[in-house]
Design a protein around this nucleic acid. Structure first.
Lengths: 162, 162
DNA sequence: TATTGTTATACTCTATAACTATA
DNA sequence: TATAGTTATAGAGTATAACAATA
């Protein structure tokens, strides 16, 4: 029997990734906490910043959460002047969610925090090594079919298919 | 300005790690679900398997959860015949939590699932590349002060210091 | 007085069903 | 009838305080 047959979970790639992933997500949440924007709110704003206004239903699909849970999320963000609800004139059932100037500024502000966070996580890796690592990880993410735009930890656990 | 100054979170090391970490944790939970053992229960059993019997308080510290929450966890595991409570004869306030034969078998059974899980995550990486990746990730984990024995995602969010 | 395990309560997050208004 | 948004309720998971038994 080779050594790899006796791999314990604590020594595995799966464990290391989940451990580092949880830590990275926690560090990101802590870094952006002073802005008053939660990771999920940031994910929503990022979609608006890149793809333009979207309905609550569309955003729910993009974030991997349920339509119902969008209500409180948008309520909170509207209350914080990060987005505004605009009645869709074509389909008057729906709202278009528009980012405010403040919302767009928050996205830029948070994206500006990313290089320092990455440097903290990368530790003593050289720039070359860090980019090689990012390429490798992106390959794994692609192979697993992970959407480059969706942060899985902002979504719930398992959702039943409709 | 170089390109790295305009890094968006979606392109960052932090995002990739949290995305892959959440996916890895979900895959692990799904793989072990048929055994009826939850990731947190597996973490507890792993500590017993490696370090021998421990009190609920000690296990709570190791798992990064609160003493109070150990009660239901041990209740459920005792009900599933994975562990048993043995009154500590030296300190009669405490229980020694002992793994049962069934509990030890579950640990072995779950550890045996790890190589296939790692292979699924590693995708088309060569064995050499996979080991290089694991070494790199372990270096990051060490640098971030992550305990090799503790799975952060089994712990709660932030706990206030007593 | 401090600690182990326990119970009870509250708060957050999420899942589900049912309602309204539009289509 | 189907869909977008809403509301209400229930269920996990966790945090906090307080209690009994023991140290």
């Amino acid at each position: 029997m080779s050594k790899s047959d006796s791999t314990r979970y604590g020594d595995s790639l799966a464990f290391l990734l989940s451990q580092l992933g949880a830590q990275s997500a926690a560090m990101f949440a802590q870094q952006i906490a002073p802005t008053g924007v939660t990771p999920r709110q940031f994910a929503l704003l990022s979609h608006l910043a890149v793809g333009g206004p979207k309905s609550q239903q569309q955003l729910a699909d993009l974030l991997g959460i349920h339509r119902n849970n969008m209500v409180d999320l948008v309520d909170a963000m509207e209350g914080a002047d990060l987005v505004e609800r605009v009645r869709d004139q074509v389909d008057r059932r729906a709202f278009e969610i528009h980012p405010t100037a403040e919302g767009m500024a928050a996205v830029a502000q948070i994206n500006a925090l990313v290089p320092a966070l990455d440097a903290e996580i990368a530790g003593q890796l050289s720039v070359k090594q860090r980019h090689a690592l990012i390429d490798t990880l992106r390959g794994l993410a692609d192979h697993l079919g992970l959407d480059a735009a969706v942060h899985p930890s902002v979504a719930g656990r398992q959702r039943s298919k409709p």
